[in-house]
Simulated assay, not measured.
Amino acid sequence: MVENIIRNILKKYGLKEDKKRLEHIKSTLEFFNGLNEEQIERIILENYTIGESFFFRDGNLWNILKRYFLEDKNYKILSLGCSRGEEVYSLSFILNDLNKDYEILGVDASYERIIQAKEGKYKYWSVRKLNESQINKYFDKKGDYYFVKEKYKKNIEFKTENITSTIRKGGKYDIVFLRRVLIYFTEAQIHNILNNIKNILNNNGLLILGHGEFYPYLTELFEFEIDNNVVLWKNTTKTYNNRYKKLISFNKNNNIKNINNINNLQKPMEPNNKKKKLIDSIVNISEDEYLEIIEKLISEKNYVFAYNLIKKIADNSLNYLIWKYKAFLEIQLNLDYKDSLNKAIFLNPDDEELWNMKNYGR
C-alpha cells in the first residue's frame, strides 16, 4: 500500500525510483505511522531532491554573467530546482548592483524549501563564500541568521511546482538555470525537458547547468560557449542532420565518446579547441562531483565509462570511496583489482564490504 503511494507520487513529479532513497522513505513513513497522503508527498519530496546550496555557487559563473547583462532591458530569468533561493537571490544581487530591470521566477517541488526561500533567512553555511563586505551589503544579521534585505526581494516570485509543469506552460526567458536537477530524470524525460526549455528561451537565451554537467542531447539543441571552464548553452536556430541524431541515440551511454564522435559527422564543425574545452569542462570537476557521476554510472552498469573517469583522479585521491569504486569496477571488468582494494582497506579498514570484496575469487 505505502509502496504504491510512493510510486504514484514519484510518477506524478517525474522522478526516478531509487532503491536507496525508497528504503529510507519507507523506514521514515513506518516511524511516523498514520500520515495522510499529502504529508507522505511532502516527506518524499524533501528526501528526493537536493537542497544543499550557497550564495554565488560556482564563482566563475557569476563573473561571466555580469558581462552578459549589458543591455538596457528587462531580464526574465527562470530558476528551476531553486531550492531555498540562494541562486535566485545571487542573481538579484548582481542585477541590482548593475542597476538592471529584471523578473525572476524560482520553482522547486519542495514546499518547505520554497517557504524558506520566500523568507530569505539563512544560516552561515549559505553565506560562507561571501566576504564581510558582501554580507553587510546584502543581508541583515539577526542572531545566528542572515536575512536578505528587502530591496533584493523585489521582482522575485517563488512557486512550489513540478518543473516539467512550469516549462510546459510556456513564457519566454532570457536565462534558464537548471543546475543539478536533471540527474533525477530518465533519459527520455531529459530529452523532453531540454526541448521544452529550448521553446521557452528567447533567441540567444542561455541555459545554465551545474558545473561539469553534460548530456549529449544538448549539442543537438544548443550552441555552446566556454569561458573560464564555464559552459553556457545558447539557444539558436541551429539543427543537425538525422545522422547526428541517430548517433546520439545509439551511443547514449557513452557521453565523452559521443563528443569525440561529433568530429566525424557531416554537420557544421566547431573549432577543435572549443570541443576540447567542452570535454575539459566535464572532467575538471570536484571529487565529490566525480563520485556523484560515478555512482550514477555504476547504478546504470555503465562500467567502462565509470572506470575511465575514476582513473583520472584515483592516483591523487585519499578518499577510500574512490579506491573502493575503482576496485569494484576492476572486478566487473576482469582487471587486477588487488592494489585498489588494498588502498581502500588501508584508508578505511572498518568498511565490511571491502573485506567481502577481498574474499572475491578465493
Results as ranks from 00 to 15, higher is better:
residue 61 L to D: 01
residue 52 E to W: 01
residue 15 L to A: 08
residue 54 F to H: 13
residue 39 Q to Y: 12
residue 72 D to M: 03
residue 46 E to A: 10
residue 72 D to P: 00
residue 17 E to G: 03
residue 74 N to V: 14
residue 22 L to N: 10
residue 26 K to E: 13
residue 63 N to Y: 03
residue 48 Y to G: 01
residue 61 L to Y: 02
residue 46 E to Q: 08
residue 31 F to G: 00
residue 77 I to H: 11
residue 32 F to Q: 06
residue 48 Y to H: 07
residue 60 N to F: 06
residue 46 E to W: 08
residue 54 F to Y: 15
residue 63 N to D: 10
residue 33 N to E: 13
residue 48 Y to E: 03
residue 68 Y to R: 14
residue 35 L to R: 15
residue 43 I to G: 11
residue 47 N to P: 00
residue 64 I to E: 06
residue 22 L to E: 02
residue 43 I to M: 05
residue 62 W to L: 06
residue 18 D to H: 11
residue 60 N to H: 03
residue 65 L to W: 05
residue 56 F to T: 04
residue 72 D to N: 15
residue 35 L to Q: 12
residue 19 K to L: 09
residue 66 K to S: 09
residue 43 I to F: 14
residue 70 L to G: 00
residue 73 K to W: 04
residue 49 T to D: 02
residue 41 E to F: 09
residue 74 N to R: 15
residue 71 E to Q: 13
residue 73 K to G: 07
residue 27 S to Y: 06
residue 29 L to G: 06
residue 76 K to N: 14
residue 70 L to Q: 12
residue 16 K to A: 05
residue 51 G to C: 00
residue 66 K to D: 02
residue 34 G to V: 09
residue 38 E to V: 14
residue 31 F to R: 15
residue 73 K to H: 05
residue 62 W to T: 05
residue 18 D to Y: 03
residue 58 D to M: 03
residue 50 I to M: 04
residue 60 N to P: 06
residue 66 K to I: 03
residue 42 R to I: 11
residue 32 F to K: 12
residue 60 N to K: 09
residue 64 I to H: 01
residue 39 Q to M: 14
residue 59 G to T: 08
residue 46 E to D: 14
residue 69 F to T: 04
residue 13 Y to N: 01
residue 28 T to F: 14
residue 28 T to S: 14
residue 72 D to H: 03
residue 69 F to V: 13
residue 63 N to H: 07
residue 73 K to V: 09
residue 71 E to D: 14
residue 18 D to M: 06
residue 52 E to V: 02
residue 30 E to W: 06
